[in-house]
Design a protein around this nucleic acid. Sequence first.
DNA 1: CCCAGTACTTGGCTATGCATAGTACTTCTG
DNA 2: CAGAAGTACTATGCATAGCCAAGTACTGGG
Lengths: 123, 123
Amino acid sequence: MNLENTQIQMRKGILEFCILHIISRGEVYASNMLDELTSAKMIVVEGTLYPLLTRLKNAGLLEYKWVESKSGPPRKYYKLTDDGTHFLKGLTETWDDVVHSTETVRSTFAAATEKNAAEENKQ
Amino acid sequence: MNLENTQIQMRKGILEFCILHIISRGEVYASNMLDELTSAKMIVVEGTLYPLLTRLKNAGLLEYKWVESKSGPPRKYYKLTDDGTHFLKGLTETWDDVVHSTETVRSTFAAATEKNAAEENKQ
DNA sequence: CCCAGTACTTGGCTATGCATAGTACTTCTG
DNA sequence: CAGAAGTACTATGCATAGCCAAGTACTGGG
């Protein structure tokens, strides 16, 4: 129960959302995504990204094509399928809901305490 | 890989943050928290909340006292320990970072594509 | 021919949220 | 007093995503 672990937990699902978003803007390969995520201060390691891309591809949300590279092995350039575009739309709503709910909890002040006091008086 | 599952994943860690926040505002017991979370549209079931409270207590972030109730079994009223207050502060920063990073990814437009094009020209 | 750099792969570990079922206490009803 | 209903807490087992760490494979330079 340390901060580092919670940071890890908080990323679950969110990474998927971010990856789909990045891919939705144009064909990219894994290193492009890592760069962009890093520049957004969302550090991701290879062992997280590659399995995620494979999952998304197997789910039919992504497709890729191999493109030769002059500086190493060929690259997988990913793009969204129609299903992927639709799924991203749903994820966006989910994310907005989660943020909104969290903000509600943060901005509510002592509602429970008041409610609790009311209940005590009632009894 | 369906929306429902991603909604579940997105809650990981965030729930912990919300619970600590609710408790930080005053002593409450589990049903109070469920009510407040539900009213914030963050639906949680008992089987999730109770183990979480136990974990937080075992980690020394919470403490509770038993209070008799006139309408059922006694209740555990929770409050934050000093460690819990400190931990919540850290979580708040983490959450703000995650939201900020995600917003950065969402608001960035085609940065990767431009970068990619530049790289191609370089070669 | 080896070495560094790039790109992708794999296997095992951990933690959290969920489903489901169960215990225990109190009050109300007949 | 017996049984039902409501409230509060407990217990077990599962699925999943992200992490770590090591490994494969291709290219070009000295």
